[in-house]
Computed example of a mutant assay.
Amino acid sequence: MAHWGVLPFAGALLVWSADRPLNETFRIPADGLVLGRDLLDEHLRGHRDDRISRSHTRLSVEAAHVRVTDLGSRNGTFSNGHTVAESIVVTPPSILRTGRSVWVIVPDVRRYEHVPLQRRGGLVVAGTLDPLCRELDDIANAEANVLLYGPLSIGRELAASYAGTIGGEVVRFDPETMKVPLERVINQRSLRTLILELGSTMPERDAETLATWLETDIRVATVVRDLRWLNELPSELVARLAMRRIDVPKQRFDELPAQVFEQSCAMSPAAPLHATVIERCLLDSFRVDEDTLQVEVRGALLRWCISGNPALRGEDLDLPDSLRHNDCIHADYHLVAPRLAAYRRGAGNLPRDEGE
Protein backbone atom coordinates (compact mmCIF):
# COMPACT_ATOMS: atom_id res chain seq x y z
CA MET A 1 0.00 0.00 0.00
CA ALA A 2 1.40 3.42 -0.96
CA HIS A 3 1.95 5.93 1.83
CA TRP A 4 1.94 8.98 -0.39
CA GLY A 5 1.93 11.54 2.43
CA VAL A 6 5.54 10.84 3.46
CA LEU A 7 6.97 12.23 0.20
CA PRO A 8 4.15 14.42 -1.14
CA PHE A 9 6.42 16.23 -3.60
CA ALA A 10 8.51 13.33 -4.85
CA GLY A 11 9.02 13.45 -8.58
CA ALA A 12 11.07 12.58 -11.63
CA LEU A 13 13.33 14.93 -13.57
CA LEU A 14 13.69 14.11 -17.25
CA VAL A 15 17.23 15.36 -17.88
CA TRP A 16 18.02 13.65 -21.19
CA SER A 17 16.06 12.12 -24.05
CA ALA A 18 17.36 10.74 -27.36
CA ASP A 19 20.25 13.10 -28.12
CA ARG A 20 19.61 16.25 -26.12
CA PRO A 21 19.48 17.59 -22.55
CA LEU A 22 16.10 18.47 -21.08
CA ASN A 23 14.74 19.86 -17.83
CA GLU A 24 11.21 18.52 -17.48
CA THR A 25 9.64 17.82 -14.10
CA PHE A 26 6.92 15.33 -13.20
CA ARG A 27 5.38 14.88 -9.77
CA ILE A 28 4.51 11.35 -8.69
CA PRO A 29 0.78 11.35 -7.86
CA ALA A 30 -0.85 9.13 -5.26
CA ASP A 31 -1.74 6.52 -7.87
CA GLY A 32 1.75 6.51 -9.39
CA LEU A 33 3.43 7.89 -12.50
CA VAL A 34 3.93 5.89 -15.69
CA LEU A 35 7.04 6.80 -17.68
CA GLY A 36 6.90 6.04 -21.37
CA ARG A 37 6.15 7.23 -24.86
CA ASP A 38 2.62 8.32 -23.94
CA LEU A 39 3.97 10.65 -21.25
CA LEU A 40 6.61 12.08 -23.58
CA ASP A 41 4.09 12.57 -26.40
CA GLU A 42 1.84 14.48 -24.03
CA HIS A 43 4.49 16.84 -22.66
CA LEU A 44 7.22 17.04 -25.32
CA ARG A 45 6.75 18.06 -28.92
CA GLY A 46 8.68 15.96 -31.40
CA HIS A 47 10.53 13.79 -28.90
CA ARG A 48 12.77 11.24 -30.62
CA ASP A 49 13.35 8.42 -28.13
CA ASP A 50 12.63 5.40 -30.30
CA ARG A 51 13.72 2.94 -27.59
CA ILE A 52 11.12 3.78 -24.95
CA SER A 53 7.91 1.76 -24.72
CA ARG A 54 4.46 3.32 -24.63
CA SER A 55 4.12 2.34 -20.96
CA HIS A 56 7.68 1.62 -19.89
CA THR A 57 8.07 2.06 -16.12
CA ARG A 58 5.81 2.87 -13.18
CA LEU A 59 6.94 4.98 -10.21
CA SER A 60 5.01 4.88 -6.95
CA VAL A 61 5.81 6.33 -3.53
CA GLU A 62 6.13 3.95 -0.60
CA ALA A 63 6.90 5.64 2.72
CA ALA A 64 10.22 7.48 2.20
CA HIS A 65 11.08 5.44 -0.89
CA VAL A 66 9.98 5.06 -4.49
CA ARG A 67 9.11 1.75 -6.10
CA VAL A 68 10.32 1.33 -9.68
CA THR A 69 8.40 -1.27 -11.67
CA ASP A 70 9.25 -2.29 -15.22
CA LEU A 71 6.01 -2.74 -17.19
CA GLY A 72 7.33 -5.35 -19.59
CA SER A 73 9.27 -2.82 -21.66
CA ARG A 74 11.10 -3.99 -24.76
CA ASN A 75 14.47 -2.43 -23.88
CA GLY A 76 14.37 -2.68 -20.10
CA THR A 77 14.58 -0.29 -17.16
CA PHE A 78 17.89 0.53 -15.47
CA SER A 79 18.05 1.82 -11.91
CA ASN A 80 21.41 3.22 -10.79
CA GLY A 81 23.07 1.33 -13.62
CA HIS A 82 21.44 -2.06 -12.91
CA THR A 83 18.66 -3.83 -14.76
CA VAL A 84 15.28 -3.85 -13.02
CA ALA A 85 14.00 -7.41 -13.43
CA GLU A 86 10.46 -6.65 -12.28
CA SER A 87 10.34 -4.20 -9.38
CA ILE A 88 12.78 -2.51 -7.02
CA VAL A 89 12.53 0.03 -4.19
CA VAL A 90 14.96 2.98 -4.32
CA THR A 91 15.76 5.87 -2.03
CA PRO A 92 15.79 9.26 -3.78
CA PRO A 93 17.86 10.71 -5.31
CA SER A 94 18.20 7.84 -7.75
CA ILE A 95 19.15 7.59 -11.44
CA LEU A 96 16.84 5.86 -13.90
CA ARG A 97 17.25 5.06 -17.61
CA THR A 98 14.41 4.01 -19.88
CA GLY A 99 15.36 3.54 -23.51
CA ARG A 100 17.33 6.62 -24.52
CA SER A 101 15.87 8.76 -21.74
CA VAL A 102 17.50 9.47 -18.38
CA TRP A 103 15.55 10.47 -15.28
CA VAL A 104 16.45 11.47 -11.74
CA ILE A 105 14.02 10.48 -8.99
CA VAL A 106 14.11 13.21 -6.34
CA PRO A 107 12.41 13.49 -2.92
CA ASP A 108 11.15 17.03 -3.62
CA VAL A 109 10.71 18.19 -7.19
CA ARG A 110 9.52 21.72 -6.41
CA ARG A 111 12.96 23.38 -6.55
CA TYR A 112 13.36 22.23 -10.16
CA GLU A 113 9.94 23.28 -11.43
CA HIS A 114 9.46 26.22 -13.82
CA VAL A 115 13.20 26.98 -14.05
CA PRO A 116 14.38 26.55 -17.66
CA LEU A 117 17.91 25.65 -18.65
CA GLN A 118 19.90 28.79 -19.43
CA ARG A 119 23.51 29.80 -19.88
CA ARG A 120 25.35 32.13 -17.55
CA GLY A 121 28.86 32.59 -18.87
CA GLY A 122 30.30 29.10 -19.14
CA LEU A 123 27.75 27.59 -16.77
CA VAL A 124 24.45 25.88 -17.46
CA VAL A 125 22.00 27.14 -14.85
CA ALA A 126 18.60 25.80 -13.81
CA GLY A 127 16.93 25.02 -10.48
CA THR A 128 20.11 24.12 -8.57
CA LEU A 129 22.29 27.14 -9.32
CA ASP A 130 19.64 29.76 -10.10
CA PRO A 131 19.05 30.73 -6.43
CA LEU A 132 22.82 30.96 -5.89
CA CYS A 133 23.24 33.20 -8.93
CA ARG A 134 20.55 35.55 -7.69
CA GLU A 135 22.17 35.63 -4.25
CA LEU A 136 25.54 36.31 -5.88
CA ASP A 137 24.08 39.26 -7.81
CA ASP A 138 22.83 40.72 -4.52
CA ILE A 139 26.28 40.29 -2.97
CA ALA A 140 27.95 41.97 -5.95
CA ASN A 141 25.48 44.86 -5.89
CA ALA A 142 26.26 45.30 -2.18
CA GLU A 143 29.97 45.25 -3.13
CA ALA A 144 30.77 42.67 -0.47
CA ASN A 145 33.61 40.17 -0.79
CA VAL A 146 32.46 36.60 -1.36
CA LEU A 147 33.83 33.13 -0.66
CA LEU A 148 32.82 30.42 -3.15
CA TYR A 149 33.36 26.99 -1.64
CA GLY A 150 33.05 23.90 -3.83
CA PRO A 151 34.17 22.52 -7.22
CA LEU A 152 36.65 24.92 -8.83
CA SER A 153 35.12 24.65 -12.31
CA ILE A 154 31.82 26.03 -11.02
CA GLY A 155 33.41 28.47 -8.58
CA ARG A 156 35.49 30.10 -11.34
CA GLU A 157 32.43 30.76 -13.47
CA LEU A 158 30.44 32.13 -10.53
CA ALA A 159 33.37 34.38 -9.62
CA ALA A 160 33.50 35.69 -13.19
CA SER A 161 29.77 36.41 -13.01
CA TYR A 162 30.27 38.27 -9.72
CA ALA A 163 33.06 40.34 -11.27
CA GLY A 164 30.91 41.10 -14.30
CA THR A 165 28.14 42.46 -12.09
CA ILE A 166 30.57 44.72 -10.24
CA GLY A 167 32.16 45.91 -13.49
CA GLY A 168 35.60 47.35 -14.13
CA GLU A 169 38.92 45.58 -14.56
CA VAL A 170 39.24 42.01 -13.31
CA VAL A 171 42.39 40.07 -12.44
CA ARG A 172 42.60 36.37 -11.63
CA PHE A 173 45.34 35.15 -9.29
CA ASP A 174 46.27 31.56 -8.48
CA PRO A 175 49.38 31.45 -6.26
CA GLU A 176 49.93 27.76 -7.00
CA THR A 177 50.19 28.01 -10.79
CA MET A 178 51.20 31.61 -11.48
CA LYS A 179 54.43 31.51 -9.45
CA VAL A 180 54.66 35.30 -9.30
CA PRO A 181 54.02 37.62 -6.35
CA LEU A 182 50.52 39.03 -6.06
CA GLU A 183 52.01 42.52 -5.92
CA ARG A 184 53.33 42.17 -9.48
CA VAL A 185 49.93 41.01 -10.72
CA ILE A 186 47.81 43.81 -9.32
CA ASN A 187 50.23 46.72 -8.84
CA GLN A 188 49.75 49.85 -10.95
CA ARG A 189 46.41 48.67 -12.33
CA SER A 190 42.97 50.19 -12.02
CA LEU A 191 41.76 46.93 -10.53
CA ARG A 192 38.15 46.60 -9.44
CA THR A 193 37.78 42.86 -8.73
CA LEU A 194 40.31 40.19 -7.82
CA ILE A 195 39.39 36.55 -8.39
CA LEU A 196 41.55 34.62 -5.93
CA GLU A 197 41.79 30.88 -6.53
CA LEU A 198 43.26 29.04 -3.57
CA GLY A 199 44.44 25.52 -4.34
CA SER A 200 47.38 25.46 -1.95
CA THR A 201 49.06 27.48 0.79
CA MET A 202 49.17 31.20 0.05
CA PRO A 203 52.67 32.67 0.54
CA GLU A 204 52.92 35.03 3.51
CA ARG A 205 54.09 37.88 1.29
CA ASP A 206 50.99 37.53 -0.91
CA ALA A 207 48.75 37.45 2.16
CA GLU A 208 50.28 40.72 3.36
CA THR A 209 49.81 42.29 -0.08
CA LEU A 210 46.19 41.16 -0.17
CA ALA A 211 45.49 42.61 3.27
CA THR A 212 46.91 45.95 2.12
CA TRP A 213 44.85 46.06 -1.07
CA LEU A 214 41.69 45.19 0.84
CA GLU A 215 42.00 48.61 2.46
CA THR A 216 41.11 50.07 -0.96
CA ASP A 217 37.85 49.64 -2.87
CA ILE A 218 38.95 46.36 -4.47
CA ARG A 219 36.47 43.51 -4.12
CA VAL A 220 37.59 39.87 -3.91
CA ALA A 221 35.88 36.65 -4.96
CA THR A 222 37.75 33.75 -3.37
CA VAL A 223 37.33 30.32 -4.95
CA VAL A 224 38.38 27.36 -2.82
CA ARG A 225 37.72 23.62 -2.89
CA ASP A 226 39.51 22.80 0.37
CA LEU A 227 38.95 25.09 3.36
CA ARG A 228 42.29 24.16 4.92
CA TRP A 229 44.06 26.54 2.51
CA LEU A 230 41.81 29.36 3.67
CA ASN A 231 42.21 28.48 7.34
CA GLU A 232 45.98 28.85 7.06
CA LEU A 233 45.54 32.59 6.49
CA PRO A 234 45.32 35.10 9.38
CA SER A 235 41.83 35.06 10.88
CA GLU A 236 41.36 38.80 10.28
CA LEU A 237 42.09 38.32 6.58
CA VAL A 238 39.74 35.34 6.34
CA ALA A 239 36.95 37.36 7.93
CA ARG A 240 37.35 40.07 5.30
CA LEU A 241 37.52 37.62 2.40
CA ALA A 242 34.47 35.69 3.58
CA MET A 243 32.12 38.60 4.22
CA ARG A 244 29.57 36.43 2.43
CA ARG A 245 29.87 32.72 1.72
CA ILE A 246 28.23 30.56 -0.93
CA ASP A 247 28.53 26.79 -0.76
CA VAL A 248 28.45 25.45 -4.31
CA PRO A 249 26.39 22.22 -4.56
CA LYS A 250 28.46 19.14 -5.32
CA GLN A 251 25.58 17.60 -7.25
CA ARG A 252 23.33 19.34 -9.75
CA PHE A 253 21.21 16.69 -11.38
CA ASP A 254 19.17 19.11 -13.48
CA GLU A 255 22.16 20.99 -14.94
CA LEU A 256 24.96 18.41 -15.27
CA PRO A 257 23.61 16.66 -18.42
CA ALA A 258 23.38 19.98 -20.27
CA GLN A 259 26.85 20.95 -19.00
CA VAL A 260 28.30 17.69 -20.33
CA PHE A 261 26.49 18.28 -23.63
CA GLU A 262 27.98 21.80 -23.85
CA GLN A 263 31.45 20.43 -23.14
CA SER A 264 31.01 17.79 -25.82
CA CYS A 265 29.83 20.30 -28.42
CA ALA A 266 32.75 22.63 -27.65
CA MET A 267 35.33 19.87 -28.07
CA SER A 268 33.79 17.78 -30.83
CA PRO A 269 30.42 18.88 -32.26
CA ALA A 270 30.19 15.64 -34.22
CA ALA A 271 30.36 13.40 -31.15
CA PRO A 272 26.95 11.77 -30.54
CA LEU A 273 26.38 11.14 -26.83
CA HIS A 274 24.66 7.91 -25.88
CA ALA A 275 22.21 8.11 -22.97
CA THR A 276 24.56 5.88 -20.96
CA VAL A 277 27.12 8.72 -20.90
CA ILE A 278 24.64 10.94 -19.08
CA GLU A 279 23.62 8.06 -16.82
CA ARG A 280 27.27 7.39 -15.98
CA CYS A 281 28.06 11.06 -15.27
CA LEU A 282 25.09 11.37 -12.93
CA LEU A 283 26.08 8.19 -11.10
CA ASP A 284 29.70 9.33 -10.85
CA SER A 285 28.55 12.64 -9.34
CA PHE A 286 27.75 10.72 -6.14
CA ARG A 287 31.44 9.86 -5.65
CA VAL A 288 33.52 12.55 -7.39
CA ASP A 289 33.17 16.29 -7.88
CA GLU A 290 32.46 18.02 -11.16
CA ASP A 291 36.12 18.94 -11.70
CA THR A 292 36.98 15.24 -11.92
CA LEU A 293 33.96 14.53 -14.10
CA GLN A 294 35.05 17.16 -16.61
CA VAL A 295 38.47 15.53 -16.89
CA GLU A 296 36.88 12.12 -17.43
CA VAL A 297 34.54 13.42 -20.14
CA ARG A 298 37.35 15.34 -21.80
CA GLY A 299 39.54 12.26 -21.92
CA ALA A 300 36.69 10.10 -23.25
CA LEU A 301 35.96 12.60 -26.03
CA LEU A 302 39.58 12.72 -27.10
CA ARG A 303 39.82 8.94 -27.16
CA TRP A 304 36.54 8.74 -29.10
CA CYS A 305 38.01 11.00 -31.78
CA ILE A 306 40.66 8.40 -32.59
CA SER A 307 38.55 5.29 -32.02
CA GLY A 308 36.17 5.52 -34.97
CA ASN A 309 33.28 4.32 -32.79
CA PRO A 310 29.82 5.53 -33.89
CA ALA A 311 28.89 7.05 -30.52
CA LEU A 312 30.38 7.88 -27.14
CA ARG A 313 28.98 5.47 -24.54
CA GLY A 314 29.07 5.34 -20.77
CA GLU A 315 31.72 2.63 -20.64
CA ASP A 316 34.04 4.89 -22.65
CA LEU A 317 34.45 7.03 -19.54
CA ASP A 318 36.35 4.20 -17.86
CA LEU A 319 39.93 5.36 -17.51
CA PRO A 320 42.82 3.43 -15.95
CA ASP A 321 44.59 5.31 -13.16
CA SER A 322 47.82 5.07 -15.16
CA LEU A 323 46.29 7.27 -17.86
CA ARG A 324 44.45 9.80 -15.73
CA HIS A 325 47.29 12.31 -16.02
CA ASN A 326 48.18 11.61 -19.63
CA ASP A 327 49.17 14.83 -21.41
CA CYS A 328 46.78 14.05 -24.26
CA ILE A 329 43.82 14.11 -21.89
CA HIS A 330 44.65 17.50 -20.43
CA ALA A 331 45.90 19.10 -23.64
CA ASP A 332 43.96 21.86 -25.34
CA TYR A 333 41.65 20.16 -27.80
CA HIS A 334 42.26 22.72 -30.53
CA LEU A 335 45.96 21.81 -30.44
CA VAL A 336 45.31 18.09 -30.36
CA ALA A 337 42.56 18.01 -33.03
CA PRO A 338 44.85 18.11 -36.12
CA ARG A 339 46.88 15.22 -34.74
CA LEU A 340 43.73 13.23 -34.06
CA ALA A 341 42.44 13.93 -37.57
CA ALA A 342 45.69 12.67 -39.08
CA TYR A 343 45.45 9.54 -36.96
CA ARG A 344 41.90 8.83 -38.14
CA ARG A 345 43.01 9.22 -41.76
CA GLY A 346 45.18 6.16 -41.22
CA ALA A 347 48.52 7.45 -40.02
CA GLY A 348 48.54 4.72 -37.39
CA ASN A 349 50.29 6.84 -34.77
CA LEU A 350 49.72 10.34 -33.52
CA PRO A 351 52.06 12.61 -35.52
CA ARG A 352 54.49 14.59 -33.43
CA ASP A 353 54.48 18.36 -33.45
CA GLU A 354 57.52 20.09 -34.87
CA GLY A 355 60.14 20.51 -32.20
CA GLU A 356 58.93 17.58 -30.09
Rank of each mutant, 00 (worst) to 15 (best):
T128M: 03
A211I: 00
P257Y: 04
D49Y: 03
D174P: 04
S268P: 00
L230N: 01
V34S: 02
R37D: 11
L39H: 01
T77E: 02
V125P: 01
S87L: 07
R339V: 11
M267F: 05
F173V: 01
P269V: 11
E204T: 08
E197R: 01
E255R: 07
D108C: 09
N23V: 11
R189I: 04
H330F: 14
F286Y: 14
H114P: 00
A30F: 06
E255K: 08
L256C: 10
D217Y: 02
P181R: 03
A10L: 02
D291I: 08
A30I: 06
D38M: 09
L44D: 12
L35P: 06
V106N: 06
T222Q: 01
I28R: 00
L96C: 03
A126E: 10
D318T: 12
S53H: 03
D31H: 14
L13N: 01
E24Q: 14
G122R: 07
F261W: 15
Y162H: 07
L214R: 06
A64R: 14
E279R: 03
R119D: 11
E296C: 10
V297F: 05
I278G: 02
R192P: 00
P8L: 02
G121C: 05
L14N: 04
R303K: 14
C328G: 14
R74C: 08
T91H: 11
P249M: 06
R339G: 06
D291S: 10
H56F: 09
I218G: 01
V170C: 08
N75V: 04
R344S: 15
T165E: 10
V125H: 03
A258F: 04
P21I: 02
R156W: 12
D130M: 13
D19G: 13
L233H: 01
C133F: 15
V66A: 08
L302R: 14
R97I: 06
T83G: 04
G46I: 07
S79R: 05
R48A: 15
R58I: 08
R303M: 12
Q259R: 12
P93V: 11
L214N: 03
E315A: 15
L256S: 05
H43F: 14
R298H: 11
T69R: 15
R303T: 04
R298A: 14
P29F: 09
I88L: 15
L117R: 08
R344M: 15
L7Y: 00
A2R: 03
T222S: 08
R240K: 14
V15N: 02
Y343F: 15
D291R: 07
L302E: 08
V185A: 14
M178F: 09
V288L: 15
D19W: 04
T69M: 12
S73Y: 10
D291T: 06
D31I: 05
V277R: 02
R54D: 05
L35F: 08
